[in-house]
């Protein structure tokens, strides 16, 4: 595993590529992330680096977290994430800044985010059920239908697809192509859509 980057979704637009084709892109404000802590096999049982993203006013930070930042000599960060790392652990030190330039144009990345909440959704929207006919005397429209048999097993099986809360959960979109990297401005463009509404926190990792 290599190191990833945290960012915020700005929105979607389109650009023209070298072959003059329209490419749909998502604009991400990515980084800078700062290395807060290094965890190693010896002390923590696994290798990883902990990175912080976005400054946070000191009055909002609780005391245990403040202590964590103080011992490292850092200003408090809003978000902390860990990236599991094997051999690369030596390459990063506490206080190092990770920018969007860890990604190259053309590279494939996975983007992780929280999807838009859809509220309490029925089975057609939530699970893609077909539903029944609206007309022609049909009395079955958007209901889930049968959810199990009678006396045997006399219960609804676990995992049966039913209505409920949809969205607002973590999702990963894999193998998005990096279209543009501007490390100075912290702008990353990936081809296609990523989970969530504008302003959502995203984790961007290399696909391989």
């Amino acid at each position: 595993m290599t190191v990833g980057l945290l960012g915020r979704k700005i929105g979607m637009t389109q650009i023209f590529d070298a072959e003059r084709r329209v490419v749909p892109v998502t604009v991400i404000k990515a980084g800078p992330c700062i290395v807060i802590q290094k965890k190693t096999m010896g002390t923590d049982g696994y290798d990883s680096i902990q990175v912080g993203f976005e400054d946070m006013p000191e009055r909002l930070v609780n005391k245990p977290m403040m202590g964590h930042f103080k011992t490292k000599g850092m200003s408090p960060k809003r978000t902390l994430r860990e990236f599991r790392i094997k051999k690369l652990a030596e390459e990063y030190n506490v206080g190092d800044i990770i920018n969007a330039d860890i990604f190259k144009v053309g590279q494939r990345v996975n983007v992780i985010g929280i999807t838009k909440g859809k509220g309490f959704a029925g089975v057609i929207k939530r699970h893609g059920f077909s539903g029944g006919k609206d007309t022609h005397g049909s009395m079955f429209h958007r209901a889930p239908g049968s959810i199990g048999q009678s006396s045997q097993p006399s219960r609804t099986l676990k995992g049966t697809k039913l209505p409920g809360r949809m969205g607002n959960k973590q999702n990963t979109v894999k193998n998005l192509r990096v279209v543009m990297v501007d490390a100075e401005q912290g702008i990353l463009l990936v081809r296609g859509a990523v989970p969530g509404h504008k302003g959502v926190l995203l984790t961007i990792k290399s696909s391989v």
Partner: peptide
Amino acid sequence: MNQIIDKVTEGQL
């Protein structure tokens, strides 16, 4: 629209 998005597409307009 968003300023950052404007900046990204500016050069292609």
